[in-house]
Design a binder for these strands. Structure first.
Lengths: 120, 120
DNA sequence: GACACTATATCCATGACGGATATAGCCTGC
DNA sequence: GCAGGCTATATCCGTCATGGATATAGTGTC
């Protein structure tokens, strides 16, 4: 299902886990485990990333420059030294937007196919 | 990324190829190769299914009862005996609708994440 | 003391994919 | 005449993303 590239080796469609991680980080910087909880919360439990999926996705995304690790950390009393915090990059934002547009046009396609009788 | 089932072993998210095939068959009964061309046409070339993906997807979908092979064929002068024609089942329609709703709510999620600046 | 939660990371099996390959008849251009 | 492309179906292979199990380890709860 080869769509287009978005410059730099990241092709669409984006792996679903990658898209969810980018959406979570678009809101604010987070560490891995917090992303896990945030995705579950935002999707009302519909999407629960497994730990394997999460950490391997983050590694891939670091290599592709979609996210970067931040040195900034919260005040020590709110922190946990084990955590690793991540921030979305401009490239990550661009890729996420491209994926969102792709999904939106896919929904449009479904609508014009006579599917989608009512609003979600 | 385990979402819910839609009764009978077919889980969401649907494999993208499966969703495209269902959308194509929602319009009218088609044979395999015609689905291939229709998907490419409807997505304006953005999605081109490989032959392996197409025929294995159809086999899986037959097993899951999402599509069925039809005995009805066009007039012999418009036909090709090699073709195998497929029709979407009520279950296939239900599954496709569920997937379309899932995608629509994913787009909504992206919108509320501050992504998606303009319409696709 | 057992269990659950936080937090990261790796391993394994499964599943979906693209592309190559196979087979084969048809048509077009050179 | 024959090379190449199109129609049409089907199988094989390597790759990639996934869920879940497992590992490690500190904290808190029952």
């Amino acid at each position: 299902m080869q769509d287009g590239d978005v410059s730099g080796g990241t092709a669409l469609p984006l792996p679903p886990a990658t898209f969810h991680i980018l959406m979570s980080l678009a809101e604010e910087d987070r560490h891995g485990y917090a992303i896990l909880q945030d995705v579950a919360r935002r999707t009302r439990g519909a999407v629960k990333l497994g730990p394997g999926t999460l950490y391997r996705s983050i590694q891939r995304m670091l290599e592709q420059g979609l996210v970067e690790e931040t040195r900034e950390r919260p005040a020590p009393e709110d922190d946990d030294e084990r955590r690793r915090y991540y921030r979305i990059t401009p490239r990550g934002t661009a890729v996420a937007r491209a994926e969102a547009r792709r999904l939106a046009s896919l929904v449009e396609l479904a609508r014009s196919s006579g599917l989608v009788p009512r609003k979600a």
